[in-house]
């Protein structure tokens, strides 16, 4: 059964442990700025929205890549960046309408969530189950609709 990240902003307390866990797992450093998941803080409303790649079916990043450096991981559906192939042209960063693939100026490569290869550190680190890794029965479209409804509520839009 394929799984996907399930984010419930209503449960997020803004502790940012997901960011720290992500940075340690993927970058080997306690530096939330290097995290692939980002918790947005809606100060005015006292709400927090964890945000990362939905591994969308459209895969704008993967299709826009001119050098075949983003590939589908058939085991968990994630779209993964191949560091040794990425030339750092950044076209994917403008093509992704979610803004969830970003350029790392220190490595000259782009980075995005790869679900930690099937064992996402953010979900493990989350103390309130705001981020869980669950069976993904839904299609990419349904996933996005569900996500949309939640972020709407969370942001009070």
């Amino acid at each position: 059964m394929q799984k996907s990240l399930h984010i419930d902003p209503g449960k997020c307390t803004g502790c940012n442990q997901c960011e720290t866990a992500c940075a340690i797992e993927n970058e080997g450093m306690v530096n939330p700025a290097r995290s692939r998941i980002k918790v947005f803080n809606f100060h005015d409303e006292g709400r927090f929205v964890p945000y990362t790649c939905t591994q969308c079916d459209e895969a704008w990043c993967m299709h826009a890549c001119p050098v075949d450096a983003i590939v589908l991981n058939p085991s968990n559906g994630s779209k993964d960046v191949l560091d040794d192939v990425c030339v750092g042209c950044k076209v994917c960063t403008i093509a992704c309408p979610f803004g969830t693939i970003n350029y790392n100026t220190s490595t000259g490569k782009v980075v995005k969530c790869d679900l930690c290869g099937g064992d996402p550190a953010c979900a493990e680190a989350c103390p309130t189950q705001a981020i869980t890794y669950v069976d993904a029965n839904a299609t990419g479209l349904d996933k996005m609709r569900a996500w949309a409804a939640k972020t709407d509520n969370a942001a009070g839009a």
Binding site: F40, F42, V49, Y51, C56, D57, E58, P97, F98, G99, G140, L141, M144, R145, W147, A148, A149, T151, D152, A155, G156, A157
Partner: peptide, 18 residues
């Protein structure tokens, strides 16, 4: 802009995907 996006545009992405 990122907050504005999360608050406003996410719900539009079903339309974008279609």
């Amino acid at each position: 802009i990122n907050e504005a996006y999360l608050a406003s545009a996410q719900s539009q992405h079903a339309a974008l995907a279609a």
